[in-house]
Design a protein around this nucleic acid. Structure first.
Lengths: 224, 224
DNA sequence: AAAAAATTCTAACTAGTGTTAGGTTTTGCC
DNA sequence: GGCAAAACCTAACACTAGTTAGAATTTTTT
């Protein structure tokens, strides 16, 4: 229980959390310093001790919104064995992404909703972080394709945009108490890799000779 | 060239278009009546002749944003033969959805970005339209599953959220001049139905006997 | 072309905005 | 306990917001 940090660290965190929540609900222009102050339990003027402007604040919130996700996925990938196959990597990345955007829900939602409305300068800086995150995913997908695990006729760029769009939308509807994040992650990974189409069971499709003999417990859940 | 509509109809449309564009760029609170007025080439006060408040305006924009997509998909589905299979239905719906959100880009983007920041009353009304659109998709998916075309172990609710999240995100990155909407739609439909995984060619996977002899032009593009 | 109706403009009001300067309180340290 | 620095508060300033009433203009109808 090392409690060395100055009093203000706690306060600054409160302001930041409050800002994320208010920005999320009211957008960039709709957020007032006074509303943040009330949520953080201090006076509007006092915010300027911690952040030098409203733009400075939103900048911090935006950065956290993406950094949280990037770090989460990067760590999850790093903790994987080197010989992990592409599908494991994808499902791991999906789970890490979802976990982060739910855990940092206020920040990621604020990021999602406010990004398009923020002054150009702030957006430009934040965009770099976004691009580098996109590059991470591109790498995961390309690696899997190089390994011969993915279709060669699929555009990985489009696939990435598709996947990230779907993942980011999750934070809009996910409510704790229902499905667990792991469940959602598993299901989403299944969609990404296998899609919705019912697989034609090989032993049945190829030579229509042998009668169907369900091979014990070998459901499509096999991997992992 | 029937030009019977009163002068104001044209003007009202201009205000609406301007509002969509400004709301899209500046969010709900960030949008000023004066900015809309300038874009629509009239004075701020004159807007009130057409719409009785800012909330009234954003309400109209939101409704158009969803209605455009809903109508587009509904029409596309209706124009399909009754015996169209599930995958055709899905690809058709995807294409219709993408076409609409690109064509009505200002409205759908405004809708996407502003929905979370709008006063509760407006959101509630608009939510019904959203729900009914979601129901359309649910129906498409369930129909396909009933026909035995889709995996039975997939949650269609999750799949729908996944798909719509991905589709709606498209409007954020799609720029005309690059890939055509049809291309994107086809690629996305492929992801939804088949995923990214390379299909194990039956003749190769089952009995590992025969040496690999690439069978001429038989890419996975087969369907359609 | 005159009268009526439909649009648009002008100018203003009130309320609330981000931000700041200077004073007040609290905190950490000897 | 006393003191300096840190943290916070108060009160205000300049500005902009949505909205409105009434005048001015344009369009339509007679």
């Amino acid at each position: 229980m090392a409690k060395k940090l100055p009093k203000s660290a706690h306060s600054q965190q409160r302001v930041l959390d409050a800002a994320a929540k208010i920005f999320r609900d009211y957008g960039y222009a709709g957020t007032t310093m006074r509303a943040i102050a009330e949520e953080a339990d201090l006076q509007a003027g006092s915010i300027y001790y911690h952040y030098k402007s409203k733009d400075d604040l939103i900048g911090a919130v935006l950065d956290i919104g993406i950094t949280a996700v990037t770090d989460s996925v990067r760590q999850a990938m790093a903790s994987l064995p080197d010989d992990a196959d592409g599908f494991t990597r994808i499902e791991t990345a999906v789970r890490a992404h979802l976990t982060a955007i739910i855990e940092f829900g206020d920040y990621t939602l604020a990021t999602r909703r406010v990004f398009g409305q923020v002054p150009e300068a702030i957006r430009a800086k934040n965009l770099k972080l976004r691009d580098s995150y996109a590059a991470m995913w591109q790498q995961i997908l390309e690696g899997a394709q190089r390994n011969g695990e993915l279709r060669n006729d699929a555009s990985l760029t489009l696939a990435r945009l598709f996947i990230l769009g779907a993942l980011n939308w999750t934070v809009e509807w996910y409510k704790p108490g229902g499905r667990s994040i792991d469940q959602v992650a598993h299901e989403f990974a299944g969609l990404i890799t296998s899609g919705l189409r019912k697989q034609t069971v090989p032993t049945l499709a190829v030579e229509a000779a042998a009668p169907v003999r369900p091979r014990a417990a070998r459901s499509a859940r096999g991997s992992r």
